[in-house]
């Protein structure tokens, strides 16, 4: 999209994955997947995240820059309920590999 002539910015909950793809500007956020802007109905919180994120358009000076936003999600990761109700087809497909990776890590 940047190649098509637009300045682009990714508000990413997974900057470690996305930087590996050569993204021009990343605002990294430690929020659960599916809610990078914030909590449901939290207008003020969403505004703060977006203002910080938008500032990256002007702060980022070189391709591939990652700027870490200072926000912390208020719930314990296990309580965020971000996962789909049913295991995704990809995870089912790779379940054995995932179990092996877990075991290899100890």
């Amino acid at each position: 999209m940047e190649e098509a002539g637009f300045s682009t910015l990714l508000l990413s909950p997974t900057w470690e994955f996305t930087r590996a793809e050569g993204i021009p500007r990343i605002a990294a956020i430690e929020y659960p997947y599916g809610r990078p802007v914030g909590q449901i109905g939290d207008r003020e919180g969403q505004r703060k995240v977006l203002l910080e994120a938008l500032s990256v358009f002007e702060k980022a000076k070189r391709p591939g820059e990652v700027i870490h936003l200072p926000f912390t999600w208020p719930e314990d990761p296990k309580k965020t309920d971000w996962q789909p109700p049913e295991m995704s087809p990809l995870i089912k497909f790779y379940l054995e590999d995932i179990k092996k990776a877990r075991q290899a890590q100890g």
């Binding site: 599916g34 802007v37 996962q83 995704s88």
Partner: peptide, 21 residues
Amino acid sequence: HLHINTNHVKQDINVILPLTR
């Protein structure tokens, strides 16, 4: 979306597509 819980977006589109904000 088969990889996330879509209920949050259905309750407030702004959590991922912040059109109102």
